Amino acid sequence: MPPHWKALAGQVTLFEEEKEIAEAAESAMANYSFNQKKVDTKKQRRSKAVYASVDLNSVSTGESRSLGPELVGHAAWQQLELDQLLDDCGFSPTEQALAEAAVVGRLIAPSSDLASWRWLRERTALVEMLSVDLSHIGKDAIYEIADLLLSNKTDIERGLRIREANLFSRPHQVFLYDLTNTYFEGSAKKNELAHRGKSKEKRTDCPLVTLALVVDDAGFPIFSQIYEGNKSEPETLKDILERLNKDASLKWQEIYP
C-alpha cells in the first residue's frame, strides 16, 4: 500500500513520503476528521432531541419583514457615500432617505412606484435603517423622489463613477453600449419621447421609449440616456460618442488612476 494511502487509512509508515503527497494526505485527513466530527455531533444532537407537539392553527405572525437583502443594499449605499452625493445635489435628509428607499426597493423588489410604496410600508425592515422615519409617508412621495432623482441624473451618474473608480481602481479601456425599450400601456400623448417602433417586448401596439446604457469593460455603468421610442443604435451612436467626449473633461486619468 502506498504511504499516503496508509496515512488515509490511519496507519503510520516507517519512511518519509514525498512532501507534496504528505501534505495532501494530511489535508485530506484533517478534512475527513472535521466532517466525521460534524456527523458524530449531529447524531448525538438527534439522540438527545426533545420533541413537543405544536398546534399550527394557533400560530400567527405579525409585522414580519425582510431584512437580509436590505442589509446588503444599505451597506452598498453607505460605501458609495450616496447620502453625501445627494446632499451635494441639494437633497434634504428626508429626500436622501426616500431616494435610498426607492433605489434599494427597486433592486430587491422591482416593480411600479405604487408597489414600491407598499413594499416599504408592509414588507421591508429598511425603514428601520434609514436616518429619517418613513413609516407614514404617502405614495406620492415615491413618485416625487423618482422625478427628483431623474432631474439630477447626470450629476449622480458622474459622482457614482468617481466613487466606483476609487473603490475599484483599474485601467479604463473599453466602453460597451446597447439599447432597449419599454412600452406605455396608455396613450402617452403628453410624453414627447413616446413613439411607435419595434418593441423588444413584442408590444408594437403601444408607444415606446428607448433606454440607452453605456458600461465599461467590467460592467460598471458610465451613463444612461432616454431617447424616443423609434430610435436605433446607428441613430444614437453619434450622440453617445459626443457625450463620451464631453465627459472626457472629467479627466479620466484622475477618475481611473
Rank of each mutant, 00 (worst) to 15 (best):
L85P: 02
G159M: 04
L98P: 03
K139P: 14
R106G: 03
L176E: 04
P3H: 07
D140R: 01
K43D: 14
D147H: 02
L241R: 09
K246R: 03
M129T: 05
D55Q: 13
G159K: 01
G219T: 04
P69T: 09
D55A: 12
D55T: 04
A28S: 12
Q36F: 13
E201A: 10
K6S: 15
K231V: 05
R243D: 11
K198Q: 06
K38E: 14
D40A: 15
V12G: 04
L56K: 08
R65N: 11
L71A: 07
G105D: 03
H136T: 14
W5N: 02
S187N: 11
Q173C: 07
K231H: 10
K139W: 11
D113G: 04
P2G: 02
A109M: 09
A97P: 10
F220H: 09
A194K: 03
Y227K: 07
W119L: 01
V54Y: 00
R121T: 04
D239T: 04
G10Q: 08
A30M: 07
E20F: 11
E201I: 00
F175L: 13
S66W: 00
K231T: 07
V72W: 09
S27Y: 13
S58L: 08
L208M: 11
G138S: 15
E128L: 11
E185I: 05
